[in-house]
Structure formats: C-alpha cells, structure tokens
Amino acid sequence: MSTAHCVERAVVTGAAGFIGSHLVDALLQRGTTVLGVDRRSPRDNAMAAENLASALGRPGFRLVQGDLVTDEIKPWVDGADAVFHLAAIPGVRPSWGDSFGEYVACNVLATQRLLDACVSCSVPRLVLASSSSVYGDATGKGPLHEECLTAPLSPYGVTKLAAERLALAYALAPASPTSVVALRYFTVYGPRQRQDMAIGRMLRAVRTGQPLRLYGDGRQRRDFTYVADAVAATAAAATAEATAEAVNVGGGDSVSVLDVLSRIAEITGAEVPVHGDTHQPGDVQVTEADLTKARELLGYEPSVTLAEGIRRQWRSLSVVAPDDTYGSKESR
C-alpha cells in the first residue's frame, strides 16, 4: 500500500459542479492551493457562478476553463500533490441513444487523457469520482461491498465503470507514480444539487406547486449521502494508504422515495405534489452501500442524517426551476 503526499496543491476537475464546488471550498478552508478545471465559466454560466461564488477571488484558488477531451492537460496537473477528478457527464436516462458518444468522450476518454498526464507528471494520487451505478440493482443482495459483482444497467453506469477500471489499471501498472482511490458515490444531495436530482426536485415542487414526475411506485430505495459527508470522504482519499482501491461512499441507510416524500412534507409543512409515471430504462430498484472499507481506509463515518440534510437543503434553496420532473436514479 502507498501513501499520498501531504496535499498542499490540488487540482479539482469539474470544479464548478455540485460536489466539485463543495470540495473546492473545503480544500481552501484547509489552506490547500486549488486549481479548478471546468468547461463552464462563471462569466457565462449562472450555475457555475453560483456554485463558485465563495471560492472566486479567494487567495489560493484559480479557475481554468478547459476541456479534458481536447486541451493540453499536463500544465494543469504538473506539480500537484493530488488530482480530484469529478468532471463527467452525469445522468442515467440521457445516456441512452445518440448522446452516448459524448458520455464516452467525457467520462472515459477524458479520464484516460487525465491519467496519462498525471503519470507523465508523477502526480502521487488521483481521486476519481465513480458511482453506485457500477453495481446495478441491489435488490435482495443487502448492502453492497466493493468486491460485489459490478453489473451496470445503463450506458452511464457502463462509462463510470470503464473510467474506474481505467484508473485502477493505470495505478497498477509497473512503476506507476500515480496511485488511485475511486469513490463510488451513492446519491449525493444537499445545497447546489443538480437540478435533475431527486431531493432538489421534490423541494422545488413544494415551492412551485408544480407536480413532481415520479417514475415507478415510489418504493424504490436509495442510499442518500449528504454532500458534506461525500466531501469529507473525498478529501480523506487524497492521503489514505492505498495503491488502487475502489471505495463506497454512502449515507448509511437505504430509504424509499415514498419515505423521502413524507420527510419533506414534515420539514416543509406541505405535501409534495406528485404526477406518477412508469419505470424508466436504467433505473434500479435499490441502492445500499456497505461502508466497512470506507471506515477502515478513510476513517469515514456519515455524520448528517437524511432529515437534517433535507432541512439544510430546504433552507438553502434559492433557485426555483420551472421544470420539476423526478428521475429515480442519481449517482452524483
């Protein structure tokens, strides 16, 4: 097993995204110098501007607008103690059909190019954002541990598994200078959550009164992970003793969508308006994480309950989206 160096300089890809922007804030708070990389610019993307509002202008932070698929990467990662690779195209349903080529480019090819650059520049550690989607459905299997069969049920999940296997292969190559920890996030939620994700859509449905499109019967279960817990695990992965490891990051409990709707009604004082729809391709019935390895390797313990996390997200909600439809599978 190897140990990454102390993280004085970090690179965060996908820095303007949901988890990426929270990670940037946490690293800056620790005194780490951070280079953020994202295709979006706060100058012309409102969500990027909102997500990075607390980081922009702070000492120690620089944002580069760049594309991992086409741009030269080595200048960004040269001299970094750790690279946190969170850039990807998310979403199960949009990954079917003609858009798959873009998923492959952004989730697989971009990861391979970044790995090449990290190895060339002798970056000690790459932390990869993987996904619970690599497992497929956990129905009847109990909490899934990292040695369980990976059987993704969507093109998105296939690209995340491919990226993960690529990263671990690079780390296991003879004399590789770059070790890898791939984090399998389970349905991360909280302030700044992507607008296509479940809890944010539920809360906006309460705000707007526009019905939430609920796919399936609501009995599908998700292991919801509060973003601050996901970030704590991600930061810990930069210095964990590891060479090539995949690690679950979950919330510690698998909860039905119906139960989430009930908790939101209690917290907001209003029922979530719902419009039922059919089960969609790629959706899984159950996700549930075994956190034994995360506890042992990362010292990870989820600290924010689902009820408290929903309260925090409800208090932070400031953008009302006009189109609130619920997709039952979110991985990041």
Rank of each mutant, 00 (worst) to 15 (best):
A4H: 13
V304M: 06
G269W: 11
T139L: 11
A26S: 14
G17M: 05
R184D: 10
S254M: 06
L306M: 07
L56Q: 05
T208C: 01
T325F: 08
V34N: 03
A163C: 07
Y156A: 02
H279A: 10
S303G: 15
Y103P: 09
R295T: 11
S21N: 10
T139W: 08
P281S: 01
D253N: 05
V227I: 15
Y215L: 09
V92N: 04
A167H: 03
A55G: 07
H275P: 10
L298Y: 15
V284N: 02
Y300P: 05
C148T: 14
S2M: 15
G66Q: 06
L126R: 11
L161V: 13
A46Q: 04
Q29S: 10
T325P: 04
L23R: 08
R125V: 04
G216N: 02
D324M: 08
P177I: 15
G200Y: 05
Y189T: 14
T32C: 12
Y189A: 07
V108D: 04
G101C: 03
D67G: 00
A235F: 07
G20I: 01
D98L: 12
A240Y: 08
S54V: 07
R192A: 02
R295A: 00
A171F: 14
C121E: 06
V119I: 14
L109G: 01
W76T: 05
A294V: 06
R295N: 01
E164N: 13
R165Y: 00
T268Y: 05
